[in-house]
Structures are given as C-alpha cells and as structure tokens.
Amino acid sequence: MPIPDAVPFDQQVASHRDYLLRFARLQLRNEAWAEDAVSETLLAALTKPLSFANRSQLKTWLVGILKHKIIDTLRHHGREVCVGSGSEDEQADPLEFIAFKADGHFGESPAEWGNPEQDLSSRQFLEILEACASKLPASQGRLFLMREWLELSSEEICKELDLTATNLYVQLHRARLRLRECLEMNWFSHPRPT
C-alpha cells in the first residue's frame, strides 16, 4: 500500500524496521548483532534521505543497506560466526541419516519431489523454507545464508571470515542436507495445503 508523501521520511523508514529485523536475525542468529545491524541501517538511511516513488523501492534500498551492514558485522566477528557449538547433533553428517546399503547404494530411492514452480513460490512453502533455514545450527545457518541470501561466493566467505575452504564445505554440506531433510518432512512428503 503506497504511503502518501505527507508521511515524513523517518517514519517511512521506521515502518520497515520489523521486516529488516526478521532477515537480520535469520542471517546473524544473534539478537544483539541483529538489533545493531538494523539500527545502523536505519541511521544510514536517515542521514542520506532519498525520495522513492513507492514503499517497495524504499524497502529494496533498505535491504541493500542492511546487507552491507550485515557483512560488516560478520567480518567483524569472524571466527565467532563460523565456529560451531561442537554438539554431537551439529557435528553429525546428515548423509548418515539417509538409508544407504552397505555397498553405498540407496536403500530406498529418494522421493520424487517434482519441481512444481507454482508450489515453490507459494507463501506457505516459502515460510516453511525460512523456518527450516532458521532451525539450522547457528554457524551452519549463517554460512548457508551467506551463500543463499547475501549471495557471496565460497571464496568470498572464506576470505571475509578467515575460514578454510574445507571447513566451509563441511558446514555447507551439513546445512544443505539438513535443509533437504526438513523440507522433505515438512513439505514434500506432506499433504499439500490447497
């Protein structure tokens, strides 16, 4: 819904705070970091007011600023970002949960998910996807979203966080397989809401 021009810029900006916080939390997995990144984003926006034709354009601009602030935060915390808790669950290789026979072949053929374009863009599916991403162990979730939301290359992530490629790949492997499992359980093997 377009907001009339009469609404002051600071109020227009502030109205996006919750939205920005949602993604900052998902990416940073730390309440204090997320609050800081969002505050800095709003501040940066207010010191450089631009005029936008509509609410969506303002939002896109704010998300762009937020992503930069988040990369700064991740870089600043470096090792803390990518060191796991060391719990057994987190260290597990989800490939071990898939039933393979002793000779390494699939015990049971993977389910046919199809690739239903319309389903994948539905609000319900995207909310489940986001919930699954938010349930990843923190370090895995951060690295996964650095790839998928911040769209950084693996090389860039290693450089920003001073992380070895091996460590990154192990964590992304676990994250992707966990996400696969979560989607399978909560969407693909589930009766679809219609």
Binding site: A111, G114, N115, E117, L120, S121, L129, E130, W149, E151
Partner: peptide
C-alpha cells in the same frame, strides 16, 4: 532433482525476501 528443486526454491525465496 531434489537438489535442483532446492536450488530453485532458494531462488524463489531470495526473490520473496528481497522483493519489494
């Protein structure tokens, strides 16, 4: 195909997240 579906799903989510 599951992996490709996930790739596609992340693309949809990115659009939804960034999109205005």
């Amino acid at each position: 195909r599951q992996v490709l579906t996930m790739r596609n799903a992340m693309k949809q989510w990115r659009q939804y997240a960034n999109d205005a």
